[in-house]
Design a protein around this nucleic acid. Sequence first.
RNA 1: GGGCACGUGGCGGAACUGGAAGACGCGCAGGAUUUAGGAUCCUGUCCCGAAAGGGGUGGGGGUUCAACUCCCUCCGUGCCCACCA
Length: 843
Amino acid sequence: MPIPTMSYSFNECEPKWQRRWKEAGSFKAVPHSTPLPGGEGKGEGKKYYLLEMFPYPSGRIHMGHVRNYTIGDILARYRLAQGFRVLHPMGFDAFGQPAENAAIKRGVDPVAWTLDCIGQMQAGLKRLGFSYDWDREVSTCSADYYRWNQWIFLKMFEKGLAYRAGAPVNWCPSCQTTLANEEVVQEGCWRCGTAVEKKELEQWYLKITAYAPELLDDLSKLIHWPDRVLTMQRNWIGRSEGTQIRFMLQDSAKTFDVFTTRPDTIFGATYVVLAPEHPLVSELIQGKPQEKQVRVFIGKVSRQSKQDRVAEGVKKEGIFTGAFAVNPVNGESVPVWVADYVLFEYGTGAVMAVPTHDQRDFLFAREHNLPMRVVISPPDGKTDPDGWKEAYEGEGKQVNSGQFDGMPNAEGKKKIALWMEEKGWAKRTVQWRLRDWLISRQRYWGTPIPVIYCGACGVVPVLEDQLPVILPEKIEITGTGGSPLAKVKEFVETACPKCRKPARRETDTMATFIDSSWYFLRFCSPGEQKLPFDSAAADFWMPVDQYIGGIEHAILHLLYSRFFTKFLRDLGLLKLEEPFSRLLTQGMVLKDGEVMSKSKGNVVDPDGVIAKYGADALRVFILFAAPPEDQLEWNDSAIEGIWRFLNRVWDLAERFSVQSLKFKEEESESKDSGPEHETLNLKLETELKRKVHAAIKRVTEDIELFKFNTAISGLMELRNGMEKGLSGCSPAAAREAVEALIRLLNPFAPHMTEELWEMLGHKEMLAAGPWPAYDAGLLTESEVTIVVQVNGKVRSRITVPVNMEKEQLKSLILADPALKKWIDGNTAKEWVIVPNRVVNIVV
RNA sequence: GGGCACGUGGCGGAACUGGAAGACGCGCAGGAUUUAGGAUCCUGUCCCGAAAGGGGUGGGGGUUCAACUCCCUCCGUGCCCACCA
């Protein structure tokens, strides 16, 4: 056995092939306007849009990027080799707070900081040899891009979908800006974790709720999205069917509505509760003895952060307003309370309380001695609530419910709602959990909102032909005291587009999630000047066939992008319903069980790994270490195994190329080829062919299923299995085997395999394909090993020709001496025979 | 509290549709080569047992000729949502 030469020098070969691909334009997407070539292979020139979530340029790339983009690159290269017309672009989500924070802390210019980060990230991505069409690169902080954010905003404004409203908003005191509901995670800021406060502010909103029904319904079309992402979106949108019931106040003409999903319990409503923020409260208590106390209570609740309000847990606080309302179904007078467990944001901000059949109402009623009445009979039939320990929320028959008594409550739900509707007391409605999207940010590094405030004309949108509203550069950013743009006189002071009188520009910028809500469309035609994108190009490339990114965007980015797509469709720019056909959410990269982060000091720098083992080894390792959706535990020594494997492939191919040269030299001389030698060769060759074609099948199928880890182990097995076969068989068979291994390995380790391909005398690059096909006829083995069990326990194994007759198999088994002690003296009661696999004898 | 995942050697992880549990790799042990180390190559590596054999996929139970796989239940871990009426 020759000692391997270890001559694989990635330092030379990786930059070389990166240069070659660039020179050849290997990864340039063929424009949509170019006619179909009807190319070779499975793809036959069909389009394939592969997209990975573009990065925020915060510095150098990290292992999470490496993983995300390696997964994408395997798929892009695989499809390209198959003859698909691949669009695989990359860009930078370049607006956002870190650049601004760097400016505040270190006085650097956000523009320069961002460009520097983009440069570093690009270099990192290029070092990994990813197959991007860099000609299509997009950066969201360039005016060429963000002008279209402004354009889309104006279109939404035109359609009434962008509006300004005063409301209590989420405020992060640390980031000094407002946040969308989606950006509040566990009552904290998604970026810094600081407890979010409520603030009454006038801000810009996008009416995403107008699309709530469609955003929910169309989730059923996303059959290739992970279930948990669909579930999360479904829960976030939160559709709830119910009934809105109108209550009249006893000593006033005023009314208010409550929302309930349980109209069957209306006869049990013994009090009603308003949210502390409910506008009616103030009127109700006017002049009543309770007024002062109620105001104190409301003041206390409003000062509490949501975090505190939730932290108190089940403890529900409330107070009687002194007012009474009338339950429409029975004319009963019920007290009106105010309590912190009713949320102003949801439903109507008021509820009817049924203590017997709602646990929250039950606890509150017990605490405050409020009356209870059972209206759904529980299984034990106890309709006196005195001894109850908790509310009964299950199914049962209606009791104490007038003409509905005796009816199962499921039926009561429908009948009572209908009856109340006929009487004009109620209407059936649908409530949504989804709120409109607050997009104003009191920050600098983002897209200026294209709006002007005029003393005479009010809110005036910037004229379309005045776009873009350029974000001023080189301004002072202190991080204190509101929107930085407000202090830039030249920016703020302008003329009203309508009356030409002096006016002020809006000084808030847009949430950066807007930037990423349509970038996938820009990639279809990145140079487009008249519109955000060219519709013909988008019609051709969209939808994204495969989208890859982190699970942390399950709601935020993926919901917003779906919203934008639907809006742009309604605008007539798209024919598309959903932007992303397939979604793969990759797991996080951990070190010592924790997410890699600078603060924890457990970061493994990709560049360091590349310097030691090369980009190919890093790519293969990160795919081999875990299935793409799982968390990946980084292990410094495990990559050694990949390094060894790649070297063993290199060594094998090199030995083969030397050997095949020798073959040619020796061909004229006498060859040792007796009949015995021929048979041996034939057997070896058949076996080698079988292994090669089995590997082609396995690797191809595994890539299709995103099982990259087992695809790589399949390649390792092929490499190990070729060790002995190669030297014994014909140069043609050996060449087929070696070349198949190289082709199959190519998407994973593209540099090394190109180098080997060239070494074997090929002029065409591997990147050009084709992907190898397997011959199913070569896969069948002539013999199989059958497991023989007695009473379900493995007792023997026999090797027989495939598809052997059952009777013949039985007699062979009965003759097996290893089985004698197990079946001797007993008679076989039953034979379970699974062809070519297992025989189980029951005795 | 609700929902969704998941639980397999010392470690990362395999196992098609219910049919040989632990593929592939790391680590470890032994050997070859080497002045030595590193690298490389070969062999072994679920547990108990000298062997025959027995046990084994978080615990318990069930279905089946046969269960990592299906059903019930309990325990544990992770993620998401969380006073949503």
